[in-house]
Design a protein around this nucleic acid. Sequence first.
DNA 1: ATCCCGGACT
DNA 2: AGTCCGGGAT
Length: 268
Amino acid sequence: MTNISEKNIRNFQEKIFAWWMENKRSLPWRETTDPYYILIAEIMLQQTQVNRSIEKYLEFIEEFPSLEKLASAPISSVLKIWSGLGYNRRALWLQEAAKQIVELKEFPKTQEELQKLKGIGPYTSRSILIFAFNYEIATVDTNIRRILIAEKFAEEETKEKELFIIAQKLLPKGRARDWHNALMDYGSLVLTAAKTGIKPKTTNSEKSKESRRYRGLIVKYLTSYSKVKKEQIVKDCNIPEEKVNDILLGLIADGLVVKIKKNYTLPE
DNA sequence: ATCCCGGACT
DNA sequence: AGTCCGGGAT
């Protein structure tokens, strides 16, 4: 990547912050710097649009107000709230991460430590350090990637590693938290994917809508009923007999369902 | 009805 | 490189 001039960087920062002063969104997870709450929000936002996350986030922190509460909760109660957000495996990972942090006695404060936790990768490890601790680092999600490309700081082909380096250069000193909130807002309200035509990197699930729906149905069902037989699931969830085996096998493979003797139930 | 969106795991 | 979910846009 060619050098970005200081003037270029300053102009960009000023433009973003000027826009943000007038247009910033008020979101529940922006009212806290508690790393536990930030962790919940970031895991949810990995997979779900802001608007759909708000209500679930509020429910979640009310039900599990502390790391300890989440770590010791039955997984069915966690999935009960999570259910409907999509990617239920991440609810398992979030609780697993909570357990690991409780063990550590102290919330991890480095990227390396955070990435050892289940469900936390390069983006989320950084975002937690930024939003909880205002650390002097940058992170890049698809919103920010799209901004970097649209503003000609990067190209569609630019590799992830390089994107992080570029983002770091653009970071205004001492304002990582505000800066990333501003970028997220700008990316999702102004430089949208539809408007810029910049395609995201990630690929989509190939699972059919139908089978996704059945999986979700079964998980939701099992948050209310435990240790049920296959026939019961077929009947109560209205799942085609010929499909139920594959779906249950998939759920078991993902650790969302366990089979004990002839009964299916949520893990633990 | 069909397409689009998204970070981390394996 | 392939897989994972569910709502919203078109």
